[in-house]
Amino acid sequence: MKTCVIFGGTGFIGSHLALYLINNQLADHVVLADIKPIRSDFTFDSSKVSYANIDVRTPISAWNLPASVDLIANFAAVHREPGHESHEYYETNLPGADNVCAWAEKVGCNSIIFTSSIAPYGPSEAEKTEESIPTPVSAYGGSKLAAEKIHMAWQKADQTRRLVIVRPGVVFGPGEGGNVTRLVKATLKRYFFYMGNRSTRKSGGYVKELVNTMWWALNEKVPATGGSFLYNFTMKPPSVEEYVNATCQVAGVSRFVPSIPYRLLLIGSYLVEAVTRPFGISTPISPVRIKKLVRSNNIQPYVLTKEKYPFKYTLETAFADWKNDRPNDWKA
Rank of each mutant, 00 (worst) to 15 (best):
Y313I: 06
E176S: 09
Y90S: 13
A332H: 12
P261G: 13
N53Y: 10
A62D: 14
S138D: 10
S286R: 09
T276F: 13
I260H: 06
S199A: 10
S203F: 02
G9F: 06
I260L: 14
T283E: 04
N110V: 06
A217P: 03
G205D: 01
G205V: 01
G142N: 00
T317A: 10
W216L: 05
I6S: 02
R263V: 06
R201P: 00
S124P: 10
T276Y: 11
V244R: 01
P310C: 08
R161H: 14
H84V: 04
E81Q: 14
K221R: 12
A62S: 15
R190L: 08
A320M: 04
H87N: 14
P168W: 01
A147I: 01
L183K: 05
A102E: 03
W330A: 11
Q155E: 12
R289M: 01
V107Q: 08
R289N: 03
L94K: 05
Y309K: 09
E209R: 05
L145D: 00
N297E: 12
A157V: 02
A146E: 08
P261V: 12
Y51R: 10
E316A: 15
V240I: 15
S40M: 15
E241S: 07
D45S: 15
E81A: 11
T283V: 13
I281P: 03
